[in-house]
Design a protein around this nucleic acid. Structure first.
Length: 631
RNA sequence: GCCCCGGUAGCUAAGCUCGGUCAUAGCAGCGGCCUCGUAAGCCGCAGGCCGCGGGUUCAAAUCCCGCCCGGGGCUCCA
């Protein structure tokens, strides 16, 4: 059975540019051979088939009018597009229908443009990101219903089926519906989230309140949503995290580089990759060129590697950049605090590998690297879940390898398997954090990419002097830094719910030690002690405000300060400090006070922060000299 | 993009249903008192285009329309 219909691919677009290149048929319309550009419009790639009439065309326009009203667009471009059918109407009939559609649309008050018929044209289009932006409709001549919207159905049909399993550390693969999740609550939540997408109660995520109350990060209403301002304490934390990841990756062998944050939309190596995802970038104009802001370090690094001379002796070759920033223009409703941003910082390390054996070996190293990186942020394997995704084919050939990954992880993991490959990778894993609202988000990730080396023209010379195409691994050992902080804050909140004192890891605490003089008679002594501690590269401040000591202690606790030291007559006489250690006394009042000498305190902090980067606090050491950024 | 919720002092909010001494409170800030031993001391002062624009009305923070901004949800997620 064959339908007779006008077929229209309907695209809500930021802009389209097209240029007639040459006539394809003798009866082509006359036109000026120049560049045409239209902005903020709905482009209608239209194909007129055998049996279509001007009436069918009018029906189509009516359907489109409805759509235009809904999305508040008022400009269309009718773009003759023969490639939607193998049963085309004759050119004269087709032109006739198109002209009818044009004049009918005009009569309905739609600002209508029409690209010339019968020409071979080149075009560039930028499509908007909302779910209705891309639709396919076909209009049956006799049918009552105007314009059938089938894009979702098509998508669903096209979407390749995922098979979900739980894989145990010993390699046992169990269909997810048969798995007994008892003792693996978070994994259950994660599997649920991935497979069914559960709803959550309307609620501000706990980390959002914390990040503001602790004066770390905040929204910046004057920027685009999802771009944040970082206060001094937050900037300090982020800076330390960045430094930590970078040091780990350099130790692993990553060569640190820096690449531009924007790229030419029309660059040949990028264009075909990008045009598949036209709605997800920030677009930036400079003179008459358009640029997109990078969404990872891939572009810069691949372009660099394209120009590099690489020998098999240098493989696996690791290249690294901390992208401050990467940009993804997530749809407005998708953003959520530090969990999902539009501008974020992500370490991105690629490895060029000669073959699959080398890739697998490297993959394991990076798996370990990722675990260690998250550990540095105070996130242990208890805090996240592993997901592994691959094709059936890859699994069959590499079962042992996949199992070795899971057994290293030591906990059951979620598996997504596909019958065929529809991404550029054959294997991917992520560590996923489950938050207080039961939402999952990926932190660390790595992939084996078998496509992009070719796409970007990256090659190496093998033993025989022949040029070879390598495999590329894409890894972010921590995932987005902002998201790590999100996970840390959400975890702290979970601790609090359990009745424990929420804290950040000591090496990341903006203030590690606070000195509180009992009264202002001890100010000089407090400052002296603060300076002595500070000289050991410990972040310390002292509270010189005119408040009661009790009040100052309360505030130190609310700031999550790990060590609070009270200075009064006793301490000065005995030279023994009274230290309030948040780990033992933080959660409730009347906690135990530790007695220790200054040297002991310093030594303990040094021990607990060993191997981690240090940075001085950029805030004044005296509390009274600090502005309040929030609240 | 759609749906829901919100926008009142630096922050957090009450007031809005039922229009009229409703412009409030707490915290923060400033001034003063207090000189304190492990989670909030006392008193006072100052602080506001009640998101923006229009409308209804004798009268609008309050009702109506439009817009802007934010959050959450949905869709989506290389």
């Amino acid at each position: 059975m064959r339908f007779i219909q006008v077929k229209i691919l309907q695209l809500h677009s930021n802009f389209i540019e097209y240029r007639p290149v040459e006539k394809e048929i003798a009866s082509a319309e006359e036109c000026e051979e120049r560049l045409y550009r239209l902005e903020e419009l709905v482009v209608l790639f239209t194909c007129v088939e055998k049996g279509d009439t001007p009436e069918t065309g009018r029906k189509a326009i009516e359907g489109i009018k409805e759509f235009l009203d809904k999305i508040k667009a008022r400009r269309i471009l009718l773009y003759p597009y023969a490639h939607l059918s193998n049963s085309l109407a004759s050119p004269s009939d087709a032109l006739n229908v198109l002209k009818e559609m044009e004049s009918y649309a005009n009569s309905l008050g739609i600002e209508t443009y029409r690209a010339p018929f019968g020409w071979c044209k080149e075009f560039t289009i930028s499509i908007k990101g909302h779910p209705l932006a891309e639709q396919f409709r076909s209009i049956l001549p006799g049918e009552e219903k105007k314009g059938e919207l089938v894009s979702k159905a098509l998508k669903a049909e096209e979407k390749i089926k995922s098979y979900w399993y739980i894989i145990e550390p010993d390699g046992k693969l169990i269909p997810v519906e048969d798995y007994d999740f008892s003792g693996h609550e978070k994994l259950r939540k994660f599997a649920n989230y991935e497979i069914s997408k559960m709803r959550a109660a309307q609620q501000t995520p706990p980390h959002v309140n914390l990040m503001r109350r602790l004066e770390l990060v905040d929204y910046e209403p004057a920027s685009d949503p999802g771009n944040f301002r970082w206060y001094p304490k937050g900037r300090l934390i982020k800076s330390l995290m960045e430094q930590f990841v970078t040091e780990k990756i350099i130790a692993y062998g990553g060569m640190e580089v820096e690449t531009p944050i924007m790229y030419d939309l029309e660059h040949p190596a990028l264009a075909n990759y990008l045009h598949r995802f036209p709605a997800r970038q920030y677009i930036l104009k400079s003179d008459d060129k358009e640029f997109f802001l990078r969404f990872s370090a891939c572009f810069g690094q691949f372009l660099m590697l394209h120009d590099a001379q690489i020998s098999y002796r240098q493989l696996p070759l690791k290249i690294y950049e901390l992208t401050r920033y990467s940009f993804r223009r997530e749809k407005s409703g998708e953003l959520s605090g530090l969990r999902r941003l539009r501008g974020f910082t992500m370490p991105d390390v690629h490895a060029i590998c000669a073959d699959m054996d080398q890739a697998k070996e490297e993959f394991l190293k990076r798996f370990q690297l990722s675990i260690e990186t998250l550990e540095g942020f105070g996130l242990s394997r208890e805090d996240y879940e592993l997901a592994v995704r691959f094709t059936r084919d890859f699994y069959q050939k590499n079962r042992d390898f996949i199992v070795s990954l899971v057994s290293r992880f030591g906990k059951p993991a979620l598996v997504e398997m596909w019958d065929e490959r529809f991404f550029y990778f054959v294997l991917k894993w992520e560590f996923n954090f489950i938050d207080n609202l039961d939402k999952a988000s990926a932190l660390s990730t790595d992939q084996i990419d078998i496509e992009n080396a070719k796409r970007y023209g990256i090659s190496y010379i093998d033993e025989k002097g022949e040029s070879k195409t390598p495999l590329i691994l894409h890894c972010s050992p921590s995932g987005a830094i902002e998201r790590d902080l999100y996970a840390m804050l959400e975890k702290a909140y979970m601790e609090q719910k359990k009745g424990r004192a929420p804290m950040l890891p000591l090496w990341l605490s903006p203030i590690q030690v606070r000195i509180i003089p009992v009264t202002d008679q001890f100010f000089a002594e407090a400052e002296k002690i603060a300076k002595r501690i500070s000289s050991h590269n410990i972040r310390v401040d002292w509270d010189d405000r005119s408040l009661t000591m009790q009040r100052k202690i309360r505030e130190a606790e609310m700031e999550w300060i790990p060590y609070t030291v009270v200075i009064g007559q006793r301490e000065i006489e005995s030279e023994v400090l009274s230290v309030r250690d948040r780990r033992v006394s933080g959660a409730k009042r009347g906690g135990e006070i530790r007695k220790m000498r200054l040297e002991e305190l310093v030594a303990e902090i040094k021990e607990r922060t060993k191997g981690k980067p240090f940075k001085h606090l950029s805030l004044p050491m005296r509390l009274s000299r600090r502005p309040r950024f929030y609240g």
